[in-house]
Design a protein around this nucleic acid. Structure first.
Length: 447
RNA sequence: GGCGGUAUAGCCAAGUAGCUAAGGCGGCGGUCUGCAAAAUCGCUAUUCGCCGGUGCAAAUCCGGCUGCCGCCUCCA
């Protein structure tokens, strides 16, 4: 049997059948008003494992992960910090991508930003108005939830429940309290874009429909994200998209569980979280990966030092065994392939797959075998573990930080000769820089 | 209140009807070692939140109860 995935839409594990030759995957990435925490990384690792497994299984994948760089929260932050929203967004995107690189999380095919897709967003809103799924009031545009027949299908909510549960005072200009904003008129001093409804900016949700359809087409295969996005974000995304196109939007919806702290969900809105950059100071990328993969992606994971330490001990047992072998053949027929594959095909059951690796470690101790060691190494690579440079993750993170900091000072002082020299030197090491005002994005190239 | 998820050893975590309930961490004992550490070998759940039911057979299905978590508001 091939890959089976749990689909939130049907609440069942279903056989995966792609629409075409290329599997299209869209991941709801960050709203970048804050730095990435461990919960964000869990989502990223889930996406990473999905893509790695699809590619290992022979599929071609096109993956999109968005950044929502304009929303209420980031505007609030701009006001509070007196810092341009673009700089805030840039900084957090850079931190996120840097952490992903260090953690060996595969890059998506594209990382679109909401602010750079205003045209697509406006066209989509216009289309919804034309089809009378949306209406304009005083520069705001709202989606008519009641007009969309299957509203609530993903989150298993009925419209009546939503009304009784509604806790916020509805905006006065809405026809119905359930309607949600597609476009918001700009208040004074807010970032805004010109639209047929005056100056304004997109509401949350619409950017994902616009960008996913722009890059992947009106219908695509898999949409991933954290469980907390099921409602309202993904519910609204479906409503907008299907209303606009009349077609099926996404076939498989995958949602990962929380990372918890003291049993409660880690979330940036409550200040209840650990930043990934801080975790990387104490634990290597491989240990963090093992910690996350020890639990199946749909279950919640408690974040604690004990759990990380446990993962560290568990990881070193595998590592120590494989390191006994100096030279291992790259091309092999891995042992226990059937069992490993079956575990992964079962909705990416990484805990079970890891169990198979430990079975191999044990067998390897009974009988020293190049085949066994090479098989273990093979599976580690499939699961995205970095080929050592172990424990240097934290150090290189900090070193790059220092180098970029100094280099940006040089750039500010217009000492471009030296800054360029550093850029060339870093590039030779496989670290590519992309300079923008105030910050430098960088990425690690595979060596 | 409505909806959804979850409950397996000291801790973490697979297993959704049928061989002895994976695997990891920890603990205990042995091997190795000048000692220690590391490594390694062995042991570590007659039992799967509670109560009842259906099966020849249930952790796995059905009904009820309880605990925990989440969503219904921004959230990965």
């Amino acid at each position: 049997m091939g890959l089976r995935l749990y689909n939130t839409l049907t609440r069942k594990t279903e056989e995966f059948k792609p629409r075409g030759d290329t599997v299209g995957i869209y991941t709801c990435g960050l709203t970048v008003q804050g730095p990435p925490h461990v919960g964000h990384i869990r989502s990223a690792i889930t996406r990473d494992i999905l893509i790695r497994w699809l590619e290992y299984s022979g599929y071609t994948v096109k993956s999109i992960e968005n950044f929502t760089d304009i929303d209420d929260k980031i505007i609030e932050k701009q006001r509070k910090n007196k810092e341009d929203w673009r700089i805030i967004a840039h900084r957090h995107i850079e931190k996120y991508l840097r952490a992903c690189d260090i953690l060996n999380i595969k890059r998506a095919t594209f990382y679109p930003w909401a602010s750079q897709h205003m045209e697509e967003i406006i066209v989509l809103v216009k289309k919804l108005i034309d089809k009378s799924f949306a209406y304009e009031k005083k520069g705001d545009v709202y989606f008519r939830v009641r007009k969309f027949p299957n509203y609530g299908r993903l989150s298993k909510k009925s419209i009546d429940e939503l009304i009784s549960g509604a806790r916020i005072a509805p905006a006065e200009s809405k026809e119905d309290p359930l309607d949600f904003a597609l476009w918001k008129a700009a208040k004074p001093d807010e970032p805004s874009w010109l639209s047929p409804w005056g100056k304004g900016r997109p509401g949350w949700h619409i950017e994902c429909s616009a960008m996913s359809m722009h890059y992947l087409g009106e219908s695509f295969d898999i949409h991933t994200g954290g469980e907390d996005l099921i409602f309202p974000h993904h519910e609204n995304e479906i409503a907008q998209s299907v209303a606009a196109t009349g077609k099926e939007y996404v076939r498989y919806w995958m949602h990962n569980g929380w990372v918890t702290l003291g049993g409660e969900k880690m979330a940036k809105s409550t200040g209840h979280y650990f930043l990934i950059e801080d975790v990387l100071k104490n634990y290597s990328p491989n240990v963090i990966r093992l910690y996350l993969l020890k639990t199946q992606y749909r279950n919640q994971i408690e974040f604690s030092k004990d759990r990380l330490d446990e993962a560290k001990a568990a990881y070193s047992r595998i590592k120590i065994y494989v390191e006994e072998f100096k030279e291992l053949p790259e091309k092999i027929e891995p042992l226990m392939l059937g069992e490993f594959t079956e575990a992964m095909n079962d909705d990416l059951n990484t805990p079970k797959a890891l169990g198979k690796i430990y079975d191999l470690v044990k067998k390897g101790h009974e009988k020293k075998s190049v085949e066994i060691a090479a098989s273990i190494k093979h599976y580690l690579a499939v699961l995205g573990f970095r080929e050592e440079v172990e424990s240097s993750g934290e150090l290189s993170y900090q070193l790059i930080d220092i180098i970029l900091h100094i280099r940006n000072k040089l750039r500010n002082e217009k000492k471009y000769d030296l800054a360029d020299e550093i850029r060339t030197d870093l590039e030779n090491l496989g670290i590519k820089l992309a300079d923008t005002k105030g910050v430098s994005l960088h990425r690690l190239e595979d060596k």
